[in-house]
Design a protein around this nucleic acid. Structure first.
Lengths: 363, 363
DNA sequence: CTGAAAGCGCTTACAG
DNA sequence: CTGAAAGCGCTTACAG
């Protein structure tokens, strides 16, 4: 795929005169102004703005005056000052590698919803799976004094977990268990086991089944591999180490691994368990360029994407329960209990083709 | 597509005893502690932490002591207090409808990089295209006193623009021009024109070309429609209003619109310009279920997705220049000039198939 | 019922 | 070279 810039457009559609530097001051409206205009004390104004005026027995008439003045002035409390004073930031952080697949995008969107429903402002940081960025993002979020930090898809969660512990930030890991933090995980072993079992249905004795993607020694990958091997063993297949390709998460790496496997063995295996949607992306482009090599190949993928599900490759996909994963994180947060080292498991779901209910997502 | 939960997994893998409530206090380390341990004044400690100690002629030895103490204590400045004092939040906000397509995910990721490289903490809010959420997210970001707000994919940017103006927040719109804000836009007309021209190549006289997706009266949609119509006219095709289907952004709606068109006309048009990747998602599932209806159909899409690009549908895709769009936003921010009402245009790129450079994205 | 005051954790002119 | 002090904009016991 080559990108060609084509249309040398005029740089500007409309040109208005330069309006000069923005006045950054803009005379910020503070609670002091609000009190002055409303003719009340600052505390009264504060009580009204925080809806605690009844508890403080402010008269309804005073409250009314304050609200009217606030409307008039366009007054909005300064979130930082409030956070500083109260010792709570009302911020909730999420760390993900990136946004560009359905799993992490789904985590992000559901996280935002959960945070907002609790009156927290969601802050999402993506790290590109770069350890330097991971550290930097974590430190930034901690410096913002987030009240909750959800960590997904980082290389080394334990450093982040310790940082949080030091600073009193409540931290939960998604699919990254560790001793210093509570964790919510997908049922990786069970999911891979089930996918592999379905892959084997109807395959002849002695059929070969490969495993593509993921990182050796990584929590999720190893469990999925275990599920895959267990299913093979159970059905009498010999697990074949040579077709376990833990090539990482890059599409290109998965593509290269497939090509190498094909060239060495003379053919692709009869079936393939793909460990991530990014590896599946490499497989998809490989299929596009060499469809003949996929004749009869059955594929299962430990992740889901709506376009991938439309490809004419014989594929079953598994959808991780993004909502469930995030909900468990917030439930843990809500209880206020530490539970370091504990793991809660969320079963994934199989995405089964059914023409009656088309495979779309609402926008 | 039906989701089936399958593996009733045990709820917990490991059970440790409840560790009780987290001590939320955790004795936060402040600059006061730092100064005490280092044996300096608070201001000296502050100067050292802000790397302005040389300007203030703090001795190198003192600076060293402070740094050592900071390490020892794990001291990190409280971002809120600093922001409050300095009158700058070091926060940069981005509003997008969601993360789950490559365009918005790309905007988000590039925005994060740009913000970080300027020492700003990125905060991204997604709105699900819900006006209530749009308002709420904008108000939240403004209450956080973000120094920059980039707005993309909202229904009514002008309310947000005005809110920002009132509060002195610098605001820039992406593909949403308005009088109250500077805007960066894709060359929608030019992109659609070029896509349509390529679509027409080799098509017979009198071939029909449809337009699918987007919202009537919406800025980007109308410009793309204009480019499409101009290209049709130029090549002697009559623009046919009945096959302009501005059915919104939901995949299902696009699918339904296609089906309706097919049933009424007895066939799909010879070619189709698809206005968004979400509409293309509806088309993809429709293709999956009725591939025979796509025989000979040529498709062009005003957006790109790696899996979509692998589908065996005769498709050319356009990739908006996400990096360019975001870069222009930050450049505008950097200059500090208002430029309300001005528009800067960024040309998109065509994604041309080329087997030599496979269509992948790095992970 | 209301107001004056302390203080959250910083930064930064200012005075030594 | 260093320190005491003011103040960012709030909230909240506390005293009237």
């Amino acid at each position: 795929m080559e990108m060609i810039a084509f249309h040398a457009a005029p740089a500007r559609e409309r040109q208005t005169e330069c309006k000069g530097m923005v006045k950054s001051g803009a005379k910020r409206v503070t609670i002091r102004d609000l009190a002055r205009i409303a003719g009340t004390s600052i505390s009264a104004a504060s009580f009204v703005m925080n809806d605690s005026w009844e508890r403080h027995r402010i008269s309804a008439e005073t409250a009314q005056r304050v609200r009217r003045a606030a409307d008039e002035l366009g007054y909005r409390p300064n979130a930082k000052a409030r956070a500083l004073r109260r010792g709570r930031s009302s911020l909730a952080g999420l760390i993900v590698p990136h946004h560009r697949n359905r799993f992490f995008a789904g985590l992000a969107e559901h996280f935002e919803a959960g945070a907002r429903s609790r009156g927290l402002v969601p802050i999402i940081g993506s790290t590109q799976r770069d350890p330097t960025v991971e550290t930097r993002v974590a430190e930034t979020l901690v410096a913002q004094e987030v009240e909750l930090l959800v960590v997904a898809g980082v290389g080394d969660p334990s450093r982040i977990n310790r940082l949080c512990r030091e600073r009193g930030v409540r931290c939960v890991n998604v699919d990254l268990p560790g001793p210093d933090s509570f964790s919510v995980v997908t049922d990786n072993r069970g999911g891979a086991f089930e996918l592999t079992r379905r892959l084997l249905r109807g395959l002849p004795e002695g059929a070969t089944v490969g495993f593509l993607g993921g990182q050796a020694d990584e929590y999720a990958t190893e469990l999925r591999l275990d599920g895959y091997r267990t299913a093979l063993k159970e059905s009498g297949h010999l697990s074949d180490g040579s077709s376990v390709l833990r090539c990482g998460y890059a599409p290109q790496a998965a593509r290269d691994a497939l090509d190498k496997l094909h060239n060495e063995a003379g053919a692709l295996p009869d079936a393939l368990l793909v460990n991530s949607i990014t590896a599946f992306e490499g497989l998809a482009t490989y299929w596009r360029d060499h469809p003949e090599r996929f004749a009869g190949l059955r594929v299962a993928c430990f992740d889901w994407d709506p376009f991938a599900a439309c490809l004419p490759i014989d594929t079953i996909m598994l959808r991780q329960d993004v909502e469930g994963l995030i909900d468990r994180c917030f439930e843990w947060f809500d209880t206020g209990i530490d539970r370091a080292g504990e793991i809660v498991m969320v079963p994934p779901q199989l995405a089964i083709e059914d023409p009656a209910t088309p495979n779309t997502t609402e926008e």
